[in-house]
Amino acid sequence: MTLETILFYALSFVSVGSALMMITRRSPVMSALYLILNFFALAGLYLTLHAQFIAVIQILVYAGAIMVLFLFVIMLLNLGDEKKLSEKMSYKKIIPAGLSFGLLMELLYIVSYAKSDLPLTHIERATEIGTVEYVGKALFTDFLFPFEVTSILLLAAIIGAVVLAKKKLD
């Protein structure tokens, strides 16, 4: 077992574990903190894939900015009575749960069999793909158009947020 595989399994274990902890915690603040742990584990996974840029962005944007917003919102909402949020198990939920479990098993079965037919063609360029220079160059040459469209998308989102959240309508 190489170092890379050991790291992969360790980080995957942490990310899956923290994701599970996140959805099972009662306290929203605890959930948010586990989500941060999950983000860090994912950033580590990106690093093992030589995607330094994405790893840094993951920590800066998600674990940094977005999580601060999350915590702010949780604290502003001040969800006092956490017990109200918990749901009771009922027979109605058994059928969907069973179906989901079946789907999960099916997917696991397929994925475990399909492992071998993944093409590994881009691996030799992998070390350079993750750098900031490479991402920047690709963004402003080959992917210029999606880049521009993204700016329109963000503009639409800003307008939408203002329309929905502006305090006073004139």
Binding site: A157, G160, V163, L164, L169
Partner: peptide
């Protein structure tokens, strides 16, 4: 990628328009 961006641009505008009568 363009399909994804197009769908998102359309959908985000529609989410807001659906709730326009605030």
């Amino acid at each position: 990628m363009i399909i994804f961006l197009g769908i998102e641009l359309m959908s985000i505008c529609l989410y807001v328009l659906a709730g326009f009568i605030r």
